[in-house]
Design a protein around this nucleic acid. Structure first.
Lengths: 138, 138
DNA sequence: CTTAAAACCTAGTAAACCGATAGGATTATA
DNA sequence: TATAATCCTATCGGTTTACTAGGTTTTAAG
């Protein structure tokens, strides 16, 4: 299951990406327009800022803005920050590898190969979609 | 993340599938061989029986056996029973569809299209792999 | 200089889910 | 009749999720 956090985060990024002018967008505006609890959204936007997707400006007229162009932001990166590893099992994760404590050897694990296929399929989809793609898809 | 339940369930099914004779396999045997807590495994095997993958025989010499041939069991079915919907979001689920309460219309949802692509990619992988494939893959 | 608007920060919390564990009841075989 | 196996119900500690509360800090505008 995709967490609400990730879902809201993607929606927020897409909302900001759709704005033509690059003026900061307020959390309250996104919150209203996308039906997201404002306080929860704030924490997500903060995380997106800390991980380098967004910049922010404080005080009146402040808000959040994209640091890179939408077509330079791959969905793999977004998902990894908001949701975590793309692999469904740590032992096939490229960025967060961890050995399973139950498998003696991964080579002979029946789950392993399947999970690699799933991971690659997901990586493919997420790597081919940028924020631009998903912001203007409809 | 793939739950332990699903992981263990797949491993157990694969273990049973690898047995040449069709004699029932005991939970204790699987538990030892695959390093799975026996009690936990029991509950999983029970679920796999109730959902029609396994048959069981009680009492001495009893155990679990496959009801269908391994090459007739698609991993989509296994995952759906153990893990739940393959889609990461209910609004793109084929079998467990549910409307999101935040989206007014799915057509314009930026997350929707991406999740459909992910779902289809996963369905593809899981639909092309049978228990036979994963039991004898190595 | 004051006020309001915005991001920023910390903490807590109810509910659900996960990964077991416990303790037996039931059934079949030898 | 003893034993070995499935089957069933309940519980439980820990973690995660999706928020909510209650502020502090910074900035722009009047």
């Amino acid at each position: 299951m995709l967490s609400k956090k990730t879902k809201y985060g993607i929606k927020a990024l897409a909302y900001i990406a759709r704005k033509k002018d690059r003026r900061p967008v307020q959390a309250s505006e996104i919150s209203e327009s996308e039906n997201i609890s404002q306080k929860f959204l704030e924490s997500i936007l903060l995380e997106l800022r800390k991980s380098g997707f967004l910049g922010s400006k404080k005080g009146k007229g402040g808000g959040y803005y994209l640091i890179k162009e939408p077509d330079e932001i791959r969905m793999t990166a977004v998902i990894r920050v908001l949701e975590g590893p793309i692999a469904m099992v740590p032992c096939v994760s490229l960025n967060y590898y961890e050995k399973c404590d139950d498998c003696p050897d991964e080579k002979n694990c029946s789950v392993h190969k399947l999970m690699i296929q799933l991971r690659d399929a997901s990586l493919n989809v997420l790597g081919e979609n940028t924020l631009e793609d998903i912001a203007f898809s409809q």
